[in-house]
């Protein structure tokens, strides 16, 4: 058969927009946008389920009694900031500046982990107050929606973490750059979902 194609991508040749430079990377980015479209509908269905069941507390604490706005606000600011840092990382790719890329994506991972920690703490608090996954339809719907978002955050930080390892091993090239770009798209999407969660779940839960 034929010889394996050698990989020649080096930093020096990185085009200004690696995510659009090859057919492969264009496919990757477009395909990922479609995945985001599909995930939007998935989350919308979980939101709908939550909205339909949020008043079925079966004697457990109601949304108004349960939610702690200061903690949610803190989590929101952490996640919003991480969205900014990941875009700064992408700017680093466009400048072909590996140091900037590494720095900002590491900050993103740390912020993501902080958010996740807050969320886990929050869940512990709620379970303590008798609001569990099986206590009522409200509980099931709440943990499914927020938990699915949480698992996306977890997947996101793991993913970016892996890419950072690849980055330090192989440098910024035509293979790693589009991957990081796509990962940052994912991260923004996770952020967008959270915008709706804090609005629809927490703030609307306080309005009643």
């Amino acid at each position: 058969m034929s010889a394996q194609v050698e990989h020649k991508g080096t930093q020096a040749h990185l085009p200004p927009h690696p995510e659009k430079a090859t057919m492969e990377s264009r496919n990757k980015v477009l395909g990922f946008w479609f995945l985001i479209g599909a995930e939007t509908v998935l989350f919308a269905c979980l939101f709908g389920t939550y909205l339909a069941l949020k008043d079925s507390t079966m004697g457990g604490p109601s949304t108004e009694e349960l939610y702690q706005i200061p903690m949610v606000a803190l989590a929101t600011f952490i996640l919003l900031t991480s969205s900014l840092t990941s875009v700064l990382g992408v700017l680093g790719i466009h400048r072909n500046n590996i140091k900037q890329v590494k720095l900002w994506f590491w900050v993103t991972v740390v912020l993501g982990a902080a958010f996740l920690g807050l969320e886990i703490y929050e869940f512990f608090e709620y379970v303590h107050e008798g609001h569990t996954f099986t206590s009522s339809a409200f509980g099931s719907a709440f943990y499914t929606l927020v938990g699915t978002h949480g698992s996306h955050v977890l997947f996101g930080i793991t993913w970016i973490f892996c890419l950072l390892i690849q980055l330090s091993r192989r440098g910024l090239n035509m293979e790693t750059a589009p991957k990081l770009y796509v990962a940052s798209l994912y991260w923004h999407f996770v952020d967008v979902v959270w915008v709706f969660i804090f609005t629809v779940v927490y703030l609307m839960g306080k309005v009643g």
């Binding site: 709908g48 389920t49 339909a52 069941l53 079925s56 507390t57 079966m58 996954f133 099986t134 009522s136 339809a137 409200f138 509980g139 099931s140 719907a141 499914t144």
Partner: peptide, 21 residues
Amino acid sequence: MFERLFGANFFDVAMGGNPVI
């Protein structure tokens, strides 16, 4: 799946669920 395997209550009327969902 959550309802069958992990005891969630989305559809069980007795626990406030709604099968029409």
